[in-house]
């Protein structure tokens, strides 16, 4: 009974975490982003910056929740025997699980790049903290940073979808790989 309650709790947390990450990214990318074109650029920058700051907090929360809820789920299901004694890389279950972990690490790295490299670049340009020779160069740099954020976000979306597929294959089978 306790294990079953823990299993429901862990599965629910896992679902909420992936929903925030995947659904949130889809909403930011396909609802908020395009709608910003209908308001003046200065206002769009304000709302873009505020919403991105808040969304990044949710993203980091969900990225932290993935392994915690995943471990809880793994132990509550009693799946330890599936990956013990060198089975981690030799069975379909182990390979699928390790691929999920690897993809999660990619999401973390991409998150770090966006949070600590690209976002500060973008916000410093927006607040006028420059040091570039011409307005044209500033705009080019700004556009290239925004393009890279969009690219990485879309790559993350695709990776998150693959993780969901791999997760479903573990829930309803013994892995897909």
């Amino acid at each position: 009974m306790t294990s079953s309650v823990m299993q429901v709790f862990a599965s629910y947390l896992h679902l909420i975490a992936v929903a925030i990450y995947l659904g949130g990214s889809i909403t930011m990318e396909f609802v908020l982003g395009p709608a910003q074109k209908y308001i003046p650029p200065a206002q769009a920058q304000i709302v873009g910056q505020k919403s991105a700051d808040r969304f990044l907090l949710l993203v980091w929360g969900s990225l932290a929740l993935f392994p915690i809820s995943g471990m809880l789920l793994f132990f509550s299901l009693g799946d330890q025997h599936m990956v013990s004694k060198g089975h981690f890389f030799n069975t379909s279950y182990g390979q699928t699980l390790s691929t999920m972990m690897f993809l999660w690490a990619v999401l973390v790295v991409n998150g770090l790049v966006i949070t600590f490299v690209l976002r500060p670049k973008l916000t410093s340009k927006l607040s006028g903290d420059l040091g570039m020779p011409s307005a044209g160069d500033k705009i080019k740099l700004l556009e290239s940073t925004a393009t890279w954020i969009t690219r990485i976000t879309r790559i993350d979306l695709a990776i998150a979808l693959v993780i969901v597929l791999l997760g479903a294959s573990l829930s309803y089978g013994n892995g897909i790989l």
């Binding site: 990450y21 659904g23 949130g24 505020k50 919403s51 949710l58 979808l161 294959s169 309803y172 897909i176």
Partner: peptide
């Protein structure tokens, strides 16, 4: 069942993630 599980989870992600983002991102940002 794997395809069903994938679709159902993706559906919940789109729907639930959307509501949560609207509530905790868009509402304060506006």
């Amino acid at each position: 069942k794997v395809i069903g599980g994938f679709l159902e989870t993706t559906g919940w992600c789109i729907y639930l993630g959307g509501i949560l983002t609207m509530e905790f991102v868009w509402r304060p940002a506006q």
